[in-house]
């Protein structure tokens, strides 16, 4: 029994050591500029947004390239109503004054798409 507990605990430890494995499928960590500027990385949950918007809204209308880390998104763009700012404007969704809701990622996470089942390699989008 004790042994089993220990093994279970070791499993939990192992999981916490490799954080993105438990993340939701298609969560995107955006840390191109955030941490250099003293903010936590942004976590973008695809699942939440796809319940509300078709892919085309962001990937066509808002011109967000589906390739991770290929979009240069700055806070001034967002304040100007581009990219996230098209909705995150205190009208459709919370605005830029609620920093920590978007900037809620763990420090030190690299940019990229997480959550398992990831296709990867040199041609990676």
């Amino acid at each position: 029994m004790r042994r089993r507990l220990l093994i279970l605990f070791a499993a939990l430890l192992a999981v916490s050591a490799v954080p993105p494995a438990a993340a939701e499928y298609a969560d995107v960590v955006i840390n191109r500029a955030a941490e250099k500027n003293g903010m936590r990385p942004v976590v973008f949950p695809h699942w939440f947004h796809r319940i509300r918007f078709a892919c085309r809204v962001c990937h066509t209308e808002l011109a967000i390239n589906p390739r991770a880390a290929s979009n240069i998104i700055t806070m001034s763009d967002i304040i100007d109503g581009k990219f996230c700012g098209a909705c995150h404007n205190n009208d459709i969704a919370w605005g830029v004054d609620r920093c920590d809701i978007c900037h809620s990622g763990k420090r030190g996470l690299p940019s990229g798409i997480v959550g398992g089942h990831e296709t990867s390699g040199p041609g990676r989008w």
């Binding site: 999981v15 490799v18 954080p19 969560d27 960590v29 920590d100 809620s104 990622g105 997480v114």
Partner: peptide, 8 residues
């Protein structure tokens, strides 16, 4: 979930 900072 391992990517969000629970202290925020």
């Amino acid at each position: 979930d391992g990517i969000h900072d629970p202290t925020v």
